[in-house]
Amino acid sequence: MAKSTLAAQSAFTDLKTSKHAALTIEVLDDLTMASIASSKGRAEEVKAAIRAAYGVELPTTPERVTGKGIAFIWHGPDQWMAIADRGAGMRDIEVELKPVLAGIAAVVDQSDGRAVVRLSGPRVRDVLAKGVGIDLDPRAFKSNGVAITHASHIGIVLWQVNDAPAYEIAMFRSFADSFATWLTHSAAEFIGH
C-alpha cells in the first residue's frame, strides 16, 4: 500500500471498542492484510515459500496458523488471507509477501478493503448465534477454526482466536456499519444500547 499523509479512518462510523462483563468489542483498525491466491497448480510451491519465510504450514482446511507476528487464514481452496498488526513500524504485508510469492501467487493488499472486529466474553456465542448459522459450540468449532459464511446476510470470514472465547470477524469495509448495526442489536440484551 502506498504511504499516505491522509489520516486513517475506522471503517466503523459508530462502533467503538468497549468492554462489558458479557461481551468485549474491539475494533481492529491498525491491521495490514493481503489476500494470497495460488496460481494454477502452484499451491505446493506457495506452501513451501511460506514455510521457508515464516516457518508455518499454510492450512488446506478452514484453519488459521500464526508465525512471526502474522496470521494466515484459509480463504478457500488454494487461497489465504495474511493479517498482521501494522504497528509503529507501518508493517506492510503486501510489500512483504510479494517477493516471497513472486510468480507463484497473486498477492493483493486488502488492508483498507476489509474491516475487522474482535468479539470476546462469556456471551459472545449467544450474540453471534442470532446472525451466524454455523455451530460455534466448542465441540464443533475450536481455536484457530475458520469459517467463511454470513452474519445477518453480510458475508464474513470468522475465526476463533482463543478459548476465552474470542473471535475475529472480517467483512468488506462497506458492510462495516451494517454489521455494527446488527451486532449492537444482537448484543443489546447483554450490554444495553
Partner: peptide
C-alpha cells in the same frame, strides 16, 4: 467438501 455442512442459504 471445503467448509463442511452448511445451510442452503449459503
Amino acid at each position: 467438501p471445503c467448509c463442511g455442512e452448511r445451510g442452503i442459504d449459503e
